[in-house]
Each structure stands twice: as structure tokens, then as C-alpha cells.
Design a binder for these strands. Sequence first.
DNA 1: TTTAAGTGAATGATTGTTCACTTAAATTTG
DNA 2: CAAATTTAAGTGAACAATCATTCACTTAAA
Lengths: 196, 196
Amino acid sequence: MRIRDEKKESLIKQKAIEMIVKHGFDGLSMQKLAKAAKVSPATIYIYFKDREDLIETISVEEVNTMTELTLKGFSPDMPFEKGLKKQWNNRAAYWINNPVQARFMEQVRFSPIGQKVHCKIKQEFSNIMREFVGNAIRNKELIPLQTEVFWSVAYAPLYQLIKFHLDGRGMHNESFQLDTKTLNTAFKLVIKSLKP
Amino acid sequence: MRIRDEKKESLIKQKAIEMIVKHGFDGLSMQKLAKAAKVSPATIYIYFKDREDLIETISVEEVNTMTELTLKGFSPDMPFEKGLKKQWNNRAAYWINNPVQARFMEQVRFSPIGQKVHCKIKQEFSNIMREFVGNAIRNKELIPLQTEVFWSVAYAPLYQLIKFHLDGRGMHNESFQLDTKTLNTAFKLVIKSLKP
DNA sequence: TTTAAGTGAATGATTGTTCACTTAAATTTG
DNA sequence: CAAATTTAAGTGAACAATCATTCACTTAAA
């Protein structure tokens, strides 16, 4: 039996992400993708059921990879401020070091595909976050809040800063680059609002 | 000379938005759109140069409409907290009352088209915001901050809450609906972090 | 020899766009 | 006032190109 060339599969995935980031979902055609990955169109269908399955599989994989890295060195038992900072740093590092994947996930998240993908993501992350927030409130390091309010205040500013960074420009169209100092300034503001 | 049936134009636009929201940019084909709007495919090309122009035009229009409504009853001379609250309410009202347009803009914003659209949006809004923030800092109602940090802390939480609302579910997959009370809670947290 | 990986060419369907044409309203002419 | 003319709106059928997918076939490893 001939063995699978796993390099082919990952090259297909990588090229698919690149094409979507560059030209949107419109820009991903199976034949162009085959050409870019230097395989036959039929080869893609060995690894993926169809176009939809390809996009969905890649999306779920990318989200899970990011989630995993977000939790690196993090524990829900950490003191609130330290834990939140860890997550901010992990997220910022991942998005900034992987801008192509970042844009891909952004695009998936805010498209009809995002809904489908959402259901297939590991629930582990959600549970860990719930524990982290629960601990922080119990220890009176965090004011009691609805999960969604907490999430919005605690993380949305970070994602907006990263969005500015990825776009390469800020509010008034001047160029913008996210650095540690800016990140810390924003983080302190967030902590100020969340601490009792 | 035969006159333009403006109902046709707006129906084309509306159906285009609906199709994109439902099926993504992939789902917008000119022939399907023509069928949905009950016109000939050729008619669409009377109003728009090509598919790209169609999407771009609609995007710019929608963003400008939203921006206009965001500034309703707002003035950069307002006291900081009052002005920010006004904008939060205006934004929340628009996005919640126009969920289809909201999803459309979301999708545009986080796709390669977003970049092109960005350049063609009225600069008026950006200038008014700059004035508002400048005033607030001068009056010591707002701590001095980089524009992007201010924007991230002041508005990103609102948009995240709206996103939860549009998705219809929150962090842990329970159903979620944004109400005035939740909005106010989040707003107070934001104010707490931004006030000197 | 067996088995699955991998292929290039071909499938019919659908794509964005155009073109020769008809229709209707405004304007000019008688 | 009405008939003739002009002008642009609007059309359905058609275009080549491209689409996702398949199939008969070859290749390579167990």
C-alpha cells in the first residue's frame, strides 16, 4: 500500500489559507488551489470530502491550534491579574506572529461559515475560562459579572488593538504597530475596570 | 427618456446584502441576484460597473448610513460620559434594529474587501471623534491616551456584546440577548477605566 | 499481488458579462 | 394638442471562462 504524503495535505491547507486571506472565500477555487499546491484537483478530494469540508476542517484546526497556544503556561488557578495578562500576551503573540492565520480566522469568524465552525470547536477552553472567572470572583479579585460582559470588557480591547495592528493603520489612517508598551497601557485600563 | 426605477436599484442592493449575509460572498452570483430582485442580469450592470463595484458601493453606503445615525443627537462638545453614552446607545440601537445590515458590514469589515472600502468612507466621522476625544482630555474627563487605545477600550466591548447578541448566544453556548441593563453594566466598567 | 495514493482530462453546471433588442418616458416638431 | 423623435432603461438569450467534482488510469509501497 502506498503511504500518504502528509506534506501534500499540509501544503494544500496552507495554500488554501493564503488564497482565502488574499482574495476572500470567492478567491478559493479548487482548481487554482490544486495548481498552487502542485497537486491534481482530484488529490484534494482524497483528503477532503468537498470544498465545504476543506474550509471547515481548516477552520476548526486553526482555531484549536490558537486556543491551545492561548492556554500555554496558563492555569485557571492563577491570580486573576497574572492569569489575564498571560492570556493577553499569549493571544497577542500568536496573532502577531501568525498574521496569515490570524486574518484567516477573522474572516471565518465573521462569515456564515463561522457559525458552523463554532459548534465543532473543543469545549475545553470554554470550561477553563469559566473556572478562571469563577475563581477570580470567589477570591474577590474580579467584580461579579455576566460572562459576556466580562469577556467583552476583558478581551475585546485586545482584539481591537490586534485588528489595528494587522490592518497596519489606526483610527485616523496613520500607520499603527502594536508594541508591548501600548499593550500594557490597554491592559492596565482593563484591569482597572474589572477589579473590585 | 425613460426614467430609472429607483425601487429596482434599492431592491438589487437589498437582495445582494441578504444573499451575502445568508451564504457569504461565495453565495452572491449576479444571475441569482437578478432572479432574486426580479430583473434581468443585464439590468444590474446599468446600476453597477461590475460585481466588485456592486459590493463596494453597497458597503460604502451602508457604512455611511450607520455612521450618520451614530452621530444623531451627538456633538463633540458634549461632556465625555454623556457623549460616549449617546454613541453607545446609537450604535447599539442601529445594530440591533438592523441585524442584516449589521452582519453584512461585519462580513465586509473582516474580508479583503474591507481594506478597499475603508479608503472610500467619509472622513467626517474620524474628525468629529478626534475633536470629541481632544475635548474630553483637555477637560480632564478622560485620561490622555493613544487614539487606538482609547478606541479599543471605549468601543470594542460594545461591539463584542453586539456580536454575542447577533449570534444569539454567549460564551458558553447559552442563548444571549443584549438588553439595556447589560449594556449599562458594561458601559459603567468602560467609564471607570477611562476616567482620570 | 494488493491496496490506496495520486493523476490529467473531462464532466455538466454555473460563473460574470455582453449584445442585439424592446419599451417607456421626455422632448421636439407640426 | 398630438404625433414623431430621441434617449436611456430594461430585457432574455448567449458568450467564453471557470467552477466543483469525477473517473479511468498510473504509481508506489506494503
